[in-house]
């Protein structure tokens, strides 16, 4: 075959390959969505983080506004210290509530922020003091059973 035709086909082939890798990175992978731009870091202490993982989304009103940067155990307070990277465009009041929610019944866990009413905003390195732990299913079930049992007891007493 003609030399230039082969060159043309191979060039086409390599370009196609590069396009495929780019397509995988941008359309299939999360190379674009993980890019939040400039961020500031705040921390939050939780007594129980459940199944929260690094890189989990931080949402407010359901919109992703940041990511969980790191999780470590604080041996002094016996709490989990969660570092959150939030988008610089969004400022939150100092008394913002941080909750750990679960997406769906068995889905991944994320941090939900609910804005408070304070006039001063959170700055780089601040700590969110109002937090609510992850819901642990076993705890909830045992609590439910306990309540049920005590309800039955009071019913029995009323019947007597």
């Amino acid at each position: 075959m003609e030399r230039t035709t082969i060159d043309l086909w191979v060039g086409f082939f390599v370009a196609l390959g590069v396009a495929a890798i780019l397509g995988l990175a941008l359309k299939v992978g999360n190379l674009t969505s993980s890019n939040i731009g400039e961020t500031y870091t705040v921390t939050a202490g939780f007594e129980n983080i459940g199944g929260l993982k690094p890189r989990a989304p931080v949402k407010s009103a359901g919109v992703v506004i940041g990511r969980v940067d790191g999780i470590r155990f604080d041996a002094e307070t016996y709490e989990a210290q969660v570092t959150l990277k939030l988008d610089k465009r969004y400022a939150f009041p100092k008394d913002t509530f941080a909750n750990i929610y679960t997406a769906g019944l068995l889905g991944e866990q994320y941090v939900g922020l609910e804005a408070g009413g304070d006039e001063v905003n959170l700055k780089e390195g601040d700590k969110i003091t109002h937090t609510q732990d992850a819901v642990v299913l076993e705890k909830m079930i045992s609590q439910f059973l306990y309540n049920k049992a005590s309800e039955n007891k009071s019913d029995n007493k009323a019947a007597e």
Partner: peptide
């Protein structure tokens, strides 16, 4: 279809490892 895919396919962990 696309958003769930993008949320769980990691560039370094999945795509680069495939390459």
């Amino acid at each position: 279809f696309w958003s769930q895919m993008q949320a769980s396919v990691d560039f370094r962990e999945d795509i680069v490892n495939g390459v």
